[in-house]
């Protein structure tokens, strides 16, 4: 594997990579929280446990990204997670929307997991060794998420008229938001040119092909029209602020605690 030691990143590259690691972590943290909202409420106990497992993995990935960001000059991961407000979070709107019904949760998780798995798979070839190592670790875990959510989407889409209606409604609402996962951050082009980050357009094309084969060819769902231009990651819905308020409440009440 070709490696580019940290010291070889230019200042511009370091800043762009810091931002990229933060947006990746933000998506993981917010989605994990939404998944966690099903704990004690999922349709059956096994799914309660499954979604909690998935959320735990996503938080693990956020920890990996933020720990790497810290070596590049970023703040302590707990500070980043618990002490930033909605104006500073850079997650996609896809992950902050309320959890909705089970079909909404599974379709969102499927769209996200496939995007994450394909991005990570490409990132294992990063010329920046610390990122390639993280990707090699996380992609193994993501494989289980994709298996699980792909099966759920199939089961719901081909289940009863009611489950099909709900699954299609979820896809129709989520599809435009999913495109946001493939918006580059500022300075990303330079990192891609240097082989540090995957080519986001190539990942997007692979993702579109994969999800189309599953959702349309296998599950008989209809993809909505291609989304129009989306606002950036600094634009949130009104759903993010209450989510953060709940997620951060314990940390903010006990700022001197050593471990969460």
């Amino acid at each position: 594997m070709t490696t580019t030691p940290t010291t070889h990143l230019t200042d511009t590259q370091t800043q762009a990579l810091l931002l990229k690691l933060t947006v990746l972590a933000d998506d993981e943290i917010i989605l994990a929280h939404r998944d966690g909202e099903w704990t004690g409420h999922a349709p059956i106990l096994e799914e309660d446990i499954a979604l909690a497992n998935i959320a735990q993995d996503e938080l693990g990935h956020a920890g990996l990204y933020l720990s790497l960001a810290q070596t590049l000059g970023g703040s302590d991961p707990d500070r980043v997670a618990f002490w930033r407000g909605p104006d500073d979070y850079r997650n996609t709107r896809l992950v902050e929307l309320p959890k909705g019904d089970w079909a909404f949760t599974m379709v969102r998780q499927f769209l996200y997991d496939t995007a994450e798995a394909l991005w990570l798979e490409a990132a294992t070839r990063s010329t920046y060794a610390p990122l390639a190592e993280i990707a090699a670790k996380a992609v193994r875990e993501e494989k289980f998420h994709v298996q699980h959510t792909a099966l759920w989407v199939e089961r719901l889409a081909l289940g009863t008229p009611e489950s099909e209606r709900r699954t299609q409604a979820a896809l129709t609402e989520l599809w435009p938001h999913a495109a946001q996962l493939f918006q580059p951050v500022e300075g990303e082009a330079e990192l891609t040119a240097a082989g540090i980050l995957p080519d986001l357009n190539a990942v997007h094309a692979r993702w579109t092909d994969l999800v189309t084969r599953h959702l349309v060819d296998k599950c008989g769902l209809t993809l909505p029209d291609a989304p129009t231009t989306q606002p950036g990651r600094d634009t949130h819905t009104h759903h993010l602020a209450p989510l953060l308020e709940e997620m951060q409440s314990v940390a903010r009440q006990h700022p001197d605690a050593e471990v969460w």
Binding site: E46, I49, A50, N53, I54, Q56, D57, E141, F144, H148
Partner: peptide
């Protein structure tokens, strides 16, 4: 398989 995730991250049911 009755559940693809189990009581710990490394197991399934």
């Amino acid at each position: 398989m009755t559940a693809s995730f189990g009581p710990t991250l490394c197991k399934r049911m």
